[in-house]
Design a protein around this nucleic acid. Sequence first.
DNA 1: ACAAAGTTCGAGTGATTACTCGAGATTCAA
DNA 2: TTGAATCTCGAGTAATCACTCGAACTTTGT
Lengths: 203, 203
Amino acid sequence: MKATELSQAGRRGPYAKSADRRRTIVTAAHAVFAARGYRGGSLQEVADRVGMSQTSLLHYFPTKRDLLLAVLTWRDSISGDGAGAPDPEESLADAVIRQALFNEDIPGVIELYTVLCAESITEDHPGRTYFLDRFARLRFSYAQAFTRLAQEGRLRRGVDPERAAASLIALWDGIQTQWLFAPDSIDMAGSLRDYLGLIILPE
Amino acid sequence: MKATELSQAGRRGPYAKSADRRRTIVTAAHAVFAARGYRGGSLQEVADRVGMSQTSLLHYFPTKRDLLLAVLTWRDSISGDGAGAPDPEESLADAVIRQALFNEDIPGVIELYTVLCAESITEDHPGRTYFLDRFARLRFSYAQAFTRLAQEGRLRRGVDPERAAASLIALWDGIQTQWLFAPDSIDMAGSLRDYLGLIILPE
DNA sequence: ACAAAGTTCGAGTGATTACTCGAGATTCAA
DNA sequence: TTGAATCTCGAGTAATCACTCGAACTTTGT
């Protein structure tokens, strides 16, 4: 028997219902963190929503930090913004608008993103790395797309791709924040469409 | 002696050093809330920074909520963004850029704003009204300015003043967030200048 | 100087926090 | 069927939270 086998000895892996259980926990945690933030939300509240004890919750996610990271990972899979281009024929502008309209209809997704993103700026926040990576990745991705448009002569003269990438993300995040405060006064897709219409020239 | 006098009887008002004391408390609280948020920051930490007991702190600000509102009010006085136009000759674009560069150099001002703004979205947050009012006021003010420019024919055709106002604020807030994560990669004033240059036509 | 007001603080208060421990219940491969 | 691993939870634990109380100490108008 080898050392590697010893370390694995007796392990049987999670039971059948385990995956389902984890999913419902992450869903509940998503709602709690969206409504109260990471610091404001408690494991007890998550456990209550799931209908299980706080101790059982900690069996699946040993620390609150682990739970948050699971929520952020799950968010990526349901919102799937960023580079993921399902249709290569779709224009950048159309993809952005479609994504914005899509997120608008999933309750809590924008709340979670906006609340946790700003909270991650505070000291010792476990979400910091996630948002740091996300911004770097998104800026790179959009800058690349704008550079491609520029090569086709479809970017307005004077527009810098890198700066436009940061500005597009900034506008998107900022308009989401205002929308959360006053949904009836803010047209998220409209603002994004206007901006993209200003910097991207018609084909 | 009248009833009104009775209700005031014996009141002498705060002592001389009281105003100073309040100022140093608000300054410390500003730093704490900027670094840890409202929920993450504690009265004990504020008291420690000032060098006084937590009990004494509560003599000046009876609740944590009161302290937060004092911090937000004070923020207005040092940052003074919004409608306040010191020089009527200064253009809207110049005023925005100047304000952005000014805030960049006051430590903690942008942190506090960004962290508390998003935190205010969460349930039962005492800062909610402040940001709600702020956004409404700012949108109105910028929309008015854009409308004036439109009347002079200096707003690009197709730009809606109300939507542009929301977009400008969104871009500003969003670029601040990215700047907090990666100050060396983000040019706040540059992004704002670019956007205003796109929608405002030269004189 | 005196007394009444403002200021300071040590010592709690109860509530809540994330997390631990140990033991019983359930699942599943053999 | 059996038995070991996974799952579940009641009962803590120590820490921290905003806030209270009552009694000293300091300031200030008279």
